[in-house]
Computed example of a mutant assay.
Amino acid sequence: MSGQSGLESVLDFLAVPVLRVEEGSARVLSVNAMARTLPFSLERGAVLDEAGAPLPPEQHPVRRAARGEPLEGALFRWETPEGDRTFVVHARMDRSCTPGVATVTFQDVTRWQRAEVDLRRALGARDTFLSVASHELRSPITVLQLVLERLHRGARREETFSGVQVAERLEPALRQVRRLGVLVQNLLDVSRARNNRFDLDRERFALSSLVREVCERFAEQARHAGSDLLMEDCPQVEVHWDRLRVEQALSNLITNAIKYGAGGPISVRAEWQDGEVSLQVWDRGIGVADGDHERIFNPFERAASGHRVESLGLGLYIVREIARAHGGTVGITGREGGGSCFTLRLPLEATERGE
């Protein structure tokens, strides 16, 4: 066996693509087995710069290696039919023969690069969440403190402190306590969902009663935001769900519509077909960009909007987890004339995950 063929046999055992390139001409002398399995050509494929534009031919890493340029861990991105792939490239020139031969190795780091991007995004979302959470939690605590201090001063100053006066001064405190309760419950739900402990307490009840109660509860809040909350069609059907959880999911969808509905009408309707119920919440607001349809259901995420809406970014994530726990789904579609339609689809008989 010749020395060259023996080297090629050794290179075939390597788990990374390897090319051996002639000095000067950049002619490929051999390609190892791993390089031959790639669905694109390392030596002729389009290599992109940071902006995504093709590099000039003379900047191609194979051409640079053939010129004897040292490539020690340089990153290059190839455009391929399956999407961009990033490789760490090393090159070493052997001039023991004439012309010399450059050995070029390619380590695919695409997966690690994507993981790094996802991690950076997750860390950014976490930092935003912590900032908003501190604001959201501090606001009701501040109001509670002020209300209780006023109540305490009033009680010390006035010997006859009537029950009506106490009730009036306690009302804002009670509102803030309820707000704190919602925030804490959302954080607890996220913890349970992420630890697969999102248990259901199922019962049989009429679907129409749940939808009507939730719509009546949020009608006043919608009016304050300039929106009319309308309950449209709802079938007379009995479901087997965790009533409190589905009520929570529908409430989250309606409050989301109130926040982003831009004061337009909001419609809630239900449909029943082939053993599945679809709960739909329509708004005429700012809408959600197509590229954000999946992202907004992740924890600590919010849709980009033209105005500032403070929230923990947990509401839609909790809706998604409630849907999954029932064996259902939630999704969003755009609508003509602007706005969004969120659809919660659940089977009549909820099937918990793992059953």
Score class of each variant (00 low, 15 high):
V246C: 00
D84A: 11
L188R: 12
G261C: 05
T105E: 08
G6W: 02
L170N: 07
L146D: 14
I286S: 14
A350Q: 13
V28K: 08
R212A: 05
F106Q: 00
A225E: 15
A91P: 04
L48Q: 07
L207N: 03
L148H: 12
F198V: 04
D201L: 13
A219E: 08
V177F: 15
L253A: 04
S305L: 01
S191C: 12
R95P: 00
L119P: 01
W282T: 04
R197N: 09
T98P: 00
D201V: 13
I254K: 02
V309E: 11
E247D: 02
D290N: 12
G124P: 00
L207W: 05
Q4F: 07
R302P: 01
L314Y: 07
S139G: 04
S131E: 08
Q176R: 10
R120M: 15
E58P: 01
Q107S: 07
L146P: 00
V319R: 02
S267G: 01
V288G: 04
V239H: 00
Q221F: 09
Q4E: 14
I286K: 03
T255F: 09
L200T: 02
G226M: 06
G3N: 10
V182Q: 07
G328Q: 08
R64M: 14
Q176A: 03
A270T: 03
V211W: 07
F300L: 07
Q4I: 09
G328C: 06
S162V: 15
V309R: 03
A46C: 14
L316P: 02
L146W: 05
R138T: 06
R157P: 02
L170I: 11
L123K: 15
A304F: 03
E116R: 13
D228H: 07
A325E: 06
I258T: 07
L48Y: 04
I266E: 01
A35D: 09
F161Q: 14
E8N: 11
I332G: 05
E22F: 03
D189F: 07
R85L: 07
L29D: 07
R175Q: 13
F297Y: 08
A350P: 12
G337Y: 14
R204F: 11
A53E: 14
F13Y: 12
R156I: 13
L314F: 08
D242C: 15
D189P: 01
G331F: 02
T110G: 06
E220F: 08
Q176D: 03
R192E: 08
G338L: 10
T37L: 10
T37H: 11
E203I: 10
V117M: 14
R36M: 08
V109T: 00
S191T: 13
T80Y: 02
S227V: 06
V319K: 10
